[in-house]
Computed example of a mutant assay.
Amino acid sequence: MNLALPLVARRQEELRPFRAEDVPEVARLFQRVYAQPEASVPLLGSCLVETFLEHPWAAPDMPSHVCVAADGAMLGFVGTLPLRLRQEGRPIRAAIASTGMVDRHEENPHVGARLMRAFLNGPQDISLNETATPPVRRMWLALGATPLPSHSLSWIRLLRPAGFAAFALARRAPMLRHAAGAAGLVDKALARLVPVPRPVEKPKAAEGDDADAEAFADLVSGDSAAAPIAPQPDLPALRWMIGQAVRKERRGVPVIRIVRDRRGRVAGGYLGHLGPRGPLQVLHLVAAPAMAELVVDELLWHASERGATAVTGRNRPELPALMDALQVRQAVFLRMQGFSLVHARNAALAQAVARGEASVTCLWGDSWARFTDGDFRGA
Results as ranks from 00 to 15, higher is better:
M291D: 14
E201I: 06
H343I: 00
L7I: 10
L83D: 07
A369F: 04
V68A: 12
Q327L: 12
G268V: 00
R370A: 10
L334V: 05
G378F: 03
V136E: 04
T312C: 05
N315W: 01
L341V: 15
Y34K: 06
F77S: 02
F18D: 13
A206I: 06
K248E: 07
R316C: 07
P276K: 13
L48R: 09
R157I: 02
W155Y: 14
V296M: 03
V111R: 00
P317H: 09
L3T: 07
R345F: 02
L148N: 07
A290D: 12
V259Y: 01
W364T: 01
S304Q: 07
M116C: 13
Q351V: 08
A191V: 08
M116I: 10
W155M: 10
I258K: 11
P254L: 02
P231Q: 05
A145K: 00
L143N: 11
R306L: 15
R239L: 02
I256S: 03
A230Y: 02
L193A: 15
P91M: 10
W364P: 02
V136Q: 07
G272Y: 09
G222N: 12
A182T: 07
L219P: 14
L185S: 08
A288L: 15
R250Y: 09
F333Y: 08
G374K: 01
P236R: 15
A267N: 04
L280Y: 03
A227G: 11
L44F: 14
L159Q: 12
T99H: 14
A358K: 03
L148V: 05
R32T: 12
E318I: 13
P134T: 06
V286W: 03
W155G: 06
D375F: 13
P317L: 00
G243H: 07
V253E: 07
V102Y: 01
R192H: 05
A20Q: 10
T80A: 15
P199Y: 01
A267F: 09
F119W: 13
A97Y: 04
C362I: 01
A308I: 06
E106T: 09
R16Q: 11
A95Y: 06
L48S: 14
F77C: 04
L341A: 10
H178V: 04
R316T: 11
G365R: 08
A182N: 08
R32V: 10
R160V: 08
Q232N: 03
G243Y: 05
L274C: 09
D22E: 12
D375Q: 12
L83I: 01
I242A: 04
R198N: 03
A331I: 01
S127D: 12
C47H: 10
